[in-house]
Design a protein around this nucleic acid. Sequence first.
DNA 1: GCAGAATACGAGCGATCATTCGCTTTTGGT
DNA 2: ACCAAAAGCGAATGATCGCTCGTATTCTGC
Lengths: 208, 208
Amino acid sequence: MARKLLTKPRKTASQERSRATVGALLEATARILVKEGFDKASTNRIAEVAGVSVGSLYQYFPGKEALVAAVIERHRQEILQTVRSELAKAWTLPVEQAMRKLVAVAVKAHRVDPRLHHVLTEQIPRVGRLETLETFGRENFALFRTYLESRRDELRVDDLELASFVCVTTIEAVTHNAVLHHSKLLTDARMDALVEETACLLIRYLKG
Amino acid sequence: MARKLLTKPRKTASQERSRATVGALLEATARILVKEGFDKASTNRIAEVAGVSVGSLYQYFPGKEALVAAVIERHRQEILQTVRSELAKAWTLPVEQAMRKLVAVAVKAHRVDPRLHHVLTEQIPRVGRLETLETFGRENFALFRTYLESRRDELRVDDLELASFVCVTTIEAVTHNAVLHHSKLLTDARMDALVEETACLLIRYLKG
DNA sequence: GCAGAATACGAGCGATCATTCGCTTTTGGT
DNA sequence: ACCAAAAGCGAATGATCGCTCGTATTCTGC
């Protein structure tokens, strides 16, 4: 019973050195995903790039999937951290400003390590624990809906469930596509135009 | 030189029997992709399900990737066939009607074998020849832009490149999400509401 | 009904990969 | 300085997979 925990702690890293190892592994995984793609990211290769042995890898991660999941979670946290405060601000803004803010924030979120985001969303098969990204979408949906309800009387639309679905999907898709597939066409100024245009789309839809 | 073609025709199926084999292989591949997922779709398993030997598989397909690519292409053609005529109609319609038509057609397209579409878009790593789906998007973009130009004087927007990008991305994302992730919430009547709502979003954006 | 072409077969090869385990090295407390 | 725990190591294992090739079966034209 307790044996399991003694022979296979599998994850707890108490000393400095081991925490560095875990960090190196995550770093190496992200690097390989970006520079060589998902299918080149074998556990042996990851360990090699991290300057660590395969055995050490399996001391802290129960398997390859968990390692990739950890990279995803780390990326998710980075996005949340750069975005949370700005999202809080938007909460009390009137619809026009809130939409601009929201789109701008979405762009910012996608610009946190875009190449990693690209691999994470388009190259990794979303199976098992690797579908964490969908949870992300749900959260956004719930938040957006709550905001719309708080501004119900300003709005033209009446089915807020439907409106939230349309809006959230649109924001995500436009920013995702813009940053990850058309980054060359959209540097700085162009990107501002895109934000304005998308916000305009949403505002005209939500308000009279 | 000609030897290559004699020893490894790799693809041309002249007799009835072989055409049936190719069909069975495509069918089996699609079935496995849907019911067991991409990573369970090994060449041996595909051949087994198709009731064919692995050797036969490699007589008509140079490799696993080509087989999957063929399934993708087949799916693409099915969509095109069920959609082409309706798209042609939309070409001459005024903006309001055209947008409704476009969204409705997009929904229809996504409803052609949704489960296969789901696997194709979300489970298959888009690398090598497997990124054919992006070409699809480009075509839609070009077509939509041309349409907007033909109606330029009716429109509120001036940067048609930008507007096309926003609109096409929105249509694709909303319909995709609706059909593939929320199919239970959106049966028939609900779906009609979604189409109307999305069309409304686009119309209000494009026109004053 | 026969010859040669087309088709089908499937055991097996080589490569890759995730994962294990017995062992060594390092660390921290005493 | 010493020892037990923690961390690290990497060759070896077993499983899977894509793919080949020599052989057997079926078809087609004559």
